[in-house]
Design a protein around this nucleic acid. Structure first.
Length: 476
RNA sequence: GCCCCCAUCGUCUAGCGGCCUAGGACACUGGCCUUUCAAGCCAGAAGCAGGGGUUCGAAUCCCCUUGGGGGCGCCA
């Protein structure tokens, strides 16, 4: 059996959309499952909208997703070039277009110079005079009578009456091919065996089939994947907020988490929900993908992501975290690796994204955290706080054992002093060393912070309290 | 308008004629744990779009209606 070859063919007119990423993922999954090839092709025939920046952004996003390709514009391959603009310059599309004209399956259309939509004539002969005079000329495919059918892996046998399909442009007047034409030429020349793409291409498929048939080429296996929709059931777009892969990366979603969620969206692998997509390659069966439009649910994405954060080993998470800090352009914590590992270990228990992790871990990394309003009004300014903090500074200064058990012992002693209730004592201490009322466990927090930071912070908080009290007295 | 696709809890799904008084997950609600909590554990509420058939029997098969989506570009 010949080699299975699949491709993902984005057009560089925007960032990689999660829908595109899902399509790429399914292509990739099947290529890997069949020990075939995954090819990346850039469809940049829309001169107006395509940019190099977007192309690079898409490549970066795909790489981040872990969807590596065997052939593509950056790595080359036996069937290159892999950019349609380059293939156009190489004359690949016009060659077959001319052939189709010669066969009588396509014709030239000449348009009016002023009213550029108005057809002047159709001809099988190259209209040299008109071209010389500067008229727009396209090459159009001539649709014949009959029916066109094809088999879709997901939808089964599909049939279209050719009378519902009009002749269509293959070569635009700027010399570039249209999508429906170029895709056929490229897929054939690149030996593509399976075309997995969005459902929005179903109605275009018969046009492509007609070209395959006219040229006497084998038709690849098609599978059209339902679109990803927003909660209002309209296709997921900017109107639903940012939808690019880059956006989810920015808000701290792990590549593993995104891929896992995207795979889950329309494809169920038994009861299991949390997995590394790469480990599910063997079980990938494209025909089990759901056949209905699916709604993108950000809250489930977050949940999946949080699970991954808690399941992966801490070293790996720390690495992801550092990469993210860098990517997101956040202030980089200047701490030792063992310290960072402990922080990540305790903080990941209660967050679902790297951004949340950063936010949650902030007081462990930096001293410039601020005090939460509620902590100040409800605890810090309370009468008991002064005595408690003084006592705490004293006891922590004398503490030698900074293990979790050690800090717990001191905390419990402080709570037993009768200065305030246990809850108030703990919350006051928590706020005093982190500025907030919601943090990892207090004993762990203190243990990680250590003697120097803890006592410094307690002292500083006590001073802050005095200043606040003075301000308040001055006002009244 | 014409053509095509789709239809199980709010969402993602299991189900492929009897195992279904429809299972799981997210979200939601309540409880537990408890030093806070966004983590964890337990419990609950929530669904086969509607109508006809076929059949001893239908979420599962067929038809219609309704609803949703896609396409009909010198966009991809």
């Amino acid at each position: 059996m010949s080699e299975v070859r699949l491709r993902f063919a984005p057009s560089p007119t925007g960032y990689l959309h999660v829908g595109g990423a899902r399509t790429a993922l399914f292509n990739w999954l099947y290529a890997r499952r069949m020990d075939g090839k995954f090819i990346l092709r850039i469809e940049d025939t829309d001169l107006q909208r395509s940019t190099k920046e977007y192309e690079q952004a898409i490549l970066d996003a795909l790489k981040w997703c872990g969807l590596d390709w065997d052939e593509g514009p950056d790595v080359g391959g036996p069937y290159g070039p892999y950019r349609q603009s380059e293939r156009t310059k190489a004359g690949i599309y016009s060659e077959y277009a001319k052939k189709l004209v010669e066969m009588g399956r396509a014709y030239y259309t000449v348009y009016d110079k002023i009213d550029r939509k108005k057809e002047l004539l159709r001809t099988f002969d190259f209209p040299k005079d008109y071209v010389d005079q500067g008229h727009d000329v396209t090459i159009n495919f001539k649709v014949q009578e009959g029916k066109t059918r094809f088999y879709d892996l997901l939808k089964g046998e599909l049939e279209f009456d050719n009378s519902t399909i009009g002749d269509f442009v293959m070569i635009k007047s700027d010399g570039f091919p249209t999508y429906n034409y170029a895709v056929v030429i490229d897929d054939h020349l690149m030996r593509i065996t399976h075309v997995f793409r969005g459902e929005d291409h179903v109605s275009n498929t018969p046009k492509q089939i007609m070209i395959y048939e006219a040229l006497g080429w084998d038709i690849p296996q098609f599978m059209h994947i339902p679109l990803i929709l927003g909660f209002d059931r309209t296709p997921l777009s900017k109107r639903h907020g940012a939808t690019s892969v880059e956006h989810f990366r920015r808000i701290g979603i792990l590549s593993k988490g995104l891929m896992n969620y995207l795979a889950l969206l329309g494809w169920s692998v038994g009861e299991e929900e949390i997995f590394d997509v790469k480990e599910k390659v063997k079980q990938f069966n494209p025909s089990t993908i759901s056949n209905k439009g699916v709604i993108f649910d950000p809250s489930k994405l977050e949940w999946v992501n949080g699970k991954h954060m808690r399941l992966m080993n801490v070293e790996e998470l720390l690495e992801e975290f550092n990469d993210w800090i860098n990517f997101a352009g956040k202030k980089v914590p200047q701490v030792e690796r063992p310290y960072a590992l402990r922080v990540v270990q305790v903080c990941r228990e209660k967050v679902n994204t790297l951004a949340q992790l950063y936010e949650f871990a902030y007081p462990f990394f930096f001293d410039d955290y601020s005090f939460e309003e509620q902590f100040v009004s409800e605890y810090l300014l309370s009468p008991f706080a002064e005595e408690l903090l003084k006592k705490a500074i004293d006891m922590f200064n004398n503490l030698e054992d900074w293990s979790v058990m050690g800090t717990e012992k001191v905390c419990r002693e402080l709570a037993g002093l009768g200065i305030a209730s246990k809850n108030k004592v703990f919350q006051t201490l928590r706020g005093a060393v982190t500025g907030r009322l919601v943090t990892p466990g207090l004993f762990e927090t203190l243990s990680i912070l250590g003697k120097q930071k803890t006592t410094e912070r307690l002292t500083r908080t006590l001073e802050y309290r005095s200043t606040k009290i003075r301000e308040r007295t001055a006002q009244t």
